[in-house]
C-alpha cells in the first residue's frame, strides 16, 4: 500500500469560489440582466426591485436565525396577513396608529412565543408546530376581517409604506437597517454565536452552559415580531389589511435563505450570503416580469433555481 502526495496548491479560482460562492453568482446574474434584459438597469426598475424584495429581506433576517438554530418557521406568511388585518381593524376602531401597530406587533410576539415554547420547551418538531400555527393564525385573520380586505381610514399611516427618503422608499431603508442589525447580532454578540452552536449540536451547547430553550424562544419570538412588522408595512403600502395575502411567503423566505447557503440542519449561515440569496430571487423574478414571462412559468423557474443552488452547494462541499 502506498500513498504519496504530489504537492499541488489548491487552485486559487476554486478557493475564491468557496469563499465568495453566491456573491459571485449574484454579481454575474446582475451583470447579465443589466446587459441583456431591457429596462432592467434603470433607476426606476432598481427602486422597484428593492421595494419588491424588502419584505422577504426583512423576514429572512429572523428566518436566518431560526434555520441556523436548526429550526423552521412556516407560520410567517399567516402572521404577515393576520397582523395587517389586526392593525387595520384596531386602527379603524381606536383611530390611533400606535394602538394598531402595537396590537399587531403584540400578536406577532405572541404567536412567535407560542411557537418557541412548544418547540423548545415541549420538544415538538418545529415543522409540525408551525404548520399548525400557520393555519390557526390564517384562520384568525379571516375571522377578524370577516373574510374581506379591511380598508384603513387613517391616512398618516400610509407614509410608512409609501414615503421615500433620499429617493429610496422607506421599506427599503427599514430592510437595510434590519440586515445591518441582525448581521451584527449574528456575528458580534454572544446570542448570535450561541444560535449557531445550538443549531450545530444542541446537546453539546446545553452542556456548555448555553440556555438552549431561552435562545430558541427568543428567536421564534423575534421571528413573529418581524413577520408582524412586515405585515404592518405591507398594509400601509396597500392601505388595507388583506387576510388573503402572503400565502407561500414562508417558502419564499426559506428559499432565499437556503439560496444564501444557510444549512437546513442548522449551525451554518451568514448574513451576507442571505442578502445575496434574497437579491438573487428578487432579480430573477424582476427579470422574468420585464421579459413578460407568464406567472405559471415563473413558479417553475424559481423552483429550478432553488434546486440548482442546493445542488451547487453540495457539489462545492464534495470538492473540498
Amino acid at each position: 500500500m502506498a500513498t504519496d502526495s504530489s504537492a499541488t496548491a489548491r487552485k486559487p479560482i476554486a478557493e475564491f469560489f468557496d469563499k465568495a460562492g453566491m456573491l459571485v453568482v449574484l454579481a454575474i446574474l446582475f451583470i447579465a440582466c443589466s446587459l441583456f434584459v431591457e429596462n432592467f438597469f434603470s433607476l426606476a426598475n432598481m427602486k422597484g426591485l428593492a421595494l419588491a424584495v424588502s419584505m422577504t429581506g426583512m423576514v429572512s433576517c429572523t428566518m436566518l436565525f431560526c434555520l441556523a438554530a436548526g429550526d423552521f418557521d412556516l407560520s410567517i406568511g399567516s402572521v404577515v396577513a393576520c397582523a395587517g388585518v389586526l392593525a387595520a381593524v384596531v386602527m379603524n376602531k381606536s383611530e390611533s396608529i400606535a394602538l394598531g401597530v402595537g396590537a399587531a406587533l403584540g400578536l406577532g410576539a405572541l404567536v412567535g412565543f407560542i411557537n418557541g415554547f412548544v418547540v423548545a420547551k415541549l420538544k415538538i418538531n418545529a415543522l409540525i408546530t408551525t404548520l399548525a400555527t400557520m393555519q390557526i393564525v390564517r384562520g384568525f385573520g379571516f375571522i377578524i376581517s370577516g373574510g374581506t380586505a379591511v380598508g384603513i381610514g387613517i391616512e398618516d399611516f400610509f407614509g410608512l409604506g409609501n414615503s421615500a427618503f433620499l429617493g429610496v422608499p422607506t421599506p427599503v431603508w427599514i430592510t437595510a437597517a434590519c440586515f445591518a442589525m441582525f448581521g451584527f447580532i449574528l456575528n458580534r454578540t454572544v446570542f448570535g454565536r450561541d444560535t449557531l452552536a445550538v443549531g450545530g449540536n444542541s446537546e453539546a451547547s446545553h452542556l456548555a452552559g448555553i440556555a438552549v430553550t431561552r435562545v430558541k424562544i427568543a428567536i421564534f419570538t423575534a421571528q413573529g415580531v418581524m413577520a408582524a412588522f412586515a405585515g404592518i408595512v405591507l398594509s400601509s403600502r396597500v392601505t388595507s389589511g388583506q387576510p388573503n395575502t402572503s400565502q407561500g411567503f414562508e417558502l419564499e423566505v426559506i428559499s432565499a435563505c437556503v439560496l444564501g447557503g444557510v444549512s437546513l440542519t442548522g449551525g451554518v449561515g451568514s448574513m451576507a450570503f442571505v442578502i445575496a440569496g434574497v437579491l438573487i430571487m428578487g432579480i430573477v423574478q424582476n427579470a422574468m416580469n420585464l421579459m413578460n414571462v407568464a406567472t405559471f412559468y415563473q413558479y417553475v423557474a424559481r423552483g429550478l433555481i432553488l434546486l440548482a443552488a442546493v445542488l451547487f452547494d453540495r457539489w462545492k462541499r464534495r470538492k473540498s
Binding site: R193, A197, G200, N201, A204, S205, L207, G267, V268
Partner: peptide, 13 residues
C-alpha cells in the same frame, strides 16, 4: 461526538 463538539463550527468557536 454527541455531547462535546459542535461539528460544523470552528476550533475557535
Amino acid at each position: 461526538k454527541k455531547e462535546g463538539i459542535v461539528p460544523v463550527r470552528s476550533v475557535l468557536e
